[in-house]
Design a binder for these strands. Structure first.
Lengths: 129, 129
DNA sequence: TCGATCCCTGCGCACATGCGCATATACTGC
DNA sequence: GCAGTATATGCGCATGTGCGCAGGGATCGA
């Protein structure tokens, strides 16, 4: 993987553990890729606001774009991404698409997003990956 | 915010709630921006692997780059981002910079990253934002 | 003091992302 | 069928991101 000599910076052993022994314990690239994509799906303010809105009620695309003050196109494209990662689902009702959160239990943490007192810094969001 | 007529797609009222009443309940743009940036910081596979490695032991930049098979430059730049969001800290020891997780309690969820059985889909990562 | 090591940063390039525009599709009511 | 509404999608542009390269500062050993 790397040609770095095992003795560079003279730290082959850390806390009594050989560095080489750590290698297999680190999340592998493929897995990291998958997880990172999921985080990135949440890494857009508009998408967070869409999820926030859907935590309040089922909404059609038109309602969402009106509520958030963004174009229908942008709304639809963000919803496609959220769909891809299974974060929202929708049902067709006539010509409308009614969207909802896949997991309703997300409503609570999303609600807390509005008022959360900047908790223990970054501690939380990864609590239970 | 938007000039959409309040009656577009004939859904002024959803579940007995006026759409307009939902507006103040949605996460505001500024807050969403801040939260989204934090998620984006986690939205890179290399950064997730850095956090994963640091969940195993304190490591210097050199060790990290060797362990993950990436250049020292890339390592340093990712660490800067993680520092910006308070996810890691470091102390200087001679000419080395020894990095560690800001919150050691993240080690557990990071360890689970390696083997987690693709849980209830996306439910978890936002459990306690 | 001098070279080597460890780390950081400015710059530039390749690539990804968000979004607007135009357009396509699907459904509704006349 | 036809016009109007609700949504989805291809394309192009402006901007953001990851990373290599080059170079600079700090520390250590000789």
């Amino acid at each position: 993987m790397t040609e770095r000599e095992e003795g560079a910076c003279d730290a082959v052993v850390v806390h009594g553990i050989k560095l080489a022994a750590l290698q297999p314990l680190v999340v592998d690239e493929e897995r990291a890729q998958v997880e990172a994509e999921r985080f990135r799906a949440l890494g857009d303010p508009t998408r967070l606001r869409i999820l926030s809105a859907l935590s309040l009620a089922e909404l059609c695309v038109c309602d969402l774009s009106g509520l958030l003050g963004i174009t229908q196109t942008a709304t639809s494209q963000h919803l496609k991404i959220l769909r891809t990662f299974g974060m929202v689902r929708y049902r067709k009702q006539g010509r409308m698409a009614i969207y909802r959160l896949t997991d309703p239990s997300l409503a609570a943490p999303l609600a807390r997003l509005r008022t959360a007192p900047r908790g223990r810094d970054l501690a939380d969001e990864r609590r239970s990956i």
